[in-house]
Every structure is written in structure tokens, then in C-alpha cells.
Simulated scan of single mutants.
Amino acid sequence: MQIQVLNSLPTDIDTIFQFYDMAVAHQKKVFNKHWQGFSLELVHTEVAENRQYKILVDGVVACVFAVTFNDKLIWADRDHDSIYIHRIVTHPEYRGYSFVKEIIKWAKEFAIANGIKYIRMDTWADNEKLLEYYTSCGFDFVGVVTMEQTKGLPKHYEGISLSLFEIIV
């Protein structure tokens, strides 16, 4: 089995949105919150800026995720020297492949090559299952933030609290 982490291409955008639709359907089944959709412009920008990624298993897209290098509204004064991982979606046929660990491995290499000190991510503060999973993957829980300013963030950030996680590279 060959696993590759590659930049997404403009031709992957339909696949990315299919993955987001699968994620929302899954979130609705297993949790009381779900994503509220993402703009096509956002994803186009991420692809153009090489911040949207795909994980291939034997040449087939099995997972997608996005990154950013600033996240001031969520991380406030701690927003520096970081790569932030967002919107990890695994195709249902590939659940159990530990793609978060693959993403961490990739992110550590990226961080070292680019002088980045932290790998960070967030999730809903009351999603116990994900909180346990992210810490089991090597993230440290570093606190909870309640979102007050969300302009520019996807709609699902409105009026929520987030658990924050990081790995020091």
C-alpha cells in the first residue's frame, strides 16, 4: 500500500466538496453539530496557494485536509510560528487508516523544512470522541476558546467553544 500526501489541484475541487458533503452527513449521524458548508472561493484560494491537500492510497483520494499559517481569531496572541490543520475528511471506505497520524508526520516534516514551531488544530469543545482521538495521536490539549469574533470564518464557528491542540515541533 502506497500513501502519498500531495497538494490538491484545481481538478480536485469537485472531489473536495464531495468529501465535505460526506463529512457533514457523518457529523449529523455521530454528533450534535456539523459544518455549515464552505465557499467555492475559499477552496479555490487554498488550492491556488498550495494549502489544500489530498492523501492518496494507491493513487485513490482517501482523505483531504487544508492548512493555514495564521489563525488569529481562534488562537489570538498565540497565533505565530504555526501550521494550522483544518477540515480533515476521510472517505468512509478508508476510516481506520490513521490519516491524522499521517498528516502529523507530513506536518512535522513541513514545519522543520520551513522553520515552523507548532502544529495546531481545533475542534468543537464538547466533541469528547475527537478530543480523545487527537490527544492519542500526539497533540497536547492547550485550552478552550469561546468564539466571539467570527467574521471571515466558516459559519459553523458562530457561537461555539473550541478545544485547542498543538504539537511542538
Rank of each mutant, 00 (worst) to 15 (best):
K129C: 08
H34K: 05
G37W: 06
E46P: 00
K108P: 04
D71L: 00
R87Y: 06
V89C: 15
D126W: 01
G37P: 05
Q149F: 07
L164F: 01
V57D: 01
Q36T: 04
E166R: 07
G143P: 11
E128A: 11
L130C: 08
V61M: 06
Y94I: 09
V145K: 08
T135E: 15
Y94S: 07
S161D: 06
Y134F: 14
H156S: 12
T123V: 06
P10Q: 07
M22A: 13
A76D: 15
H156D: 12
I83W: 02
F110V: 00
A125E: 09
K117L: 12
D81Y: 09
T146V: 09
W106N: 03
I88Q: 07
R95Y: 12
A66Q: 10
L42D: 08
I55F: 03
H44W: 04
R78A: 14
D122G: 06
T15N: 11
D12G: 10
Y20R: 12
I104C: 09
V142C: 13
K105F: 12
P10H: 10
V43Q: 08
F17P: 00
I13W: 04
I103C: 04
P10R: 08
I55T: 03
T90Y: 01
C63L: 02
G59S: 01
A48R: 10
M147F: 07
Q18D: 14
I3G: 06
F110D: 00
S163M: 00
A66W: 01
S8V: 01
N70S: 15
M1A: 14
I103H: 01
C137M: 09
R78C: 12
Q18Y: 07
F17Q: 05
D77H: 09
H86W: 13
L131D: 07
V30I: 15
G37M: 11
C63H: 07
V169K: 04
Q149M: 10
Q2I: 10
A25E: 15
L130T: 08
I104D: 07
K101Y: 04
P92K: 04
V89I: 14
A111G: 08
H80C: 06
F38G: 05
A76Y: 08
Y97N: 13
I85K: 07
K29T: 14
V89S: 12
H80D: 05
Y97V: 01
E128C: 05
K54G: 02
A48P: 02
F110R: 05
D12Y: 00
S39Q: 10
G152W: 06
Q4K: 14
Y94V: 10
H156M: 05
W35Q: 13
I13N: 05
N50K: 15
E93M: 10
E166A: 05
V61K: 07
V24E: 15
I85Q: 05
I3M: 12
Y84F: 12
G159Q: 06
K33H: 15
L153A: 07
Q18N: 14
D21W: 00
D140W: 00
K155I: 10
A107V: 04
R120V: 03
A23F: 08
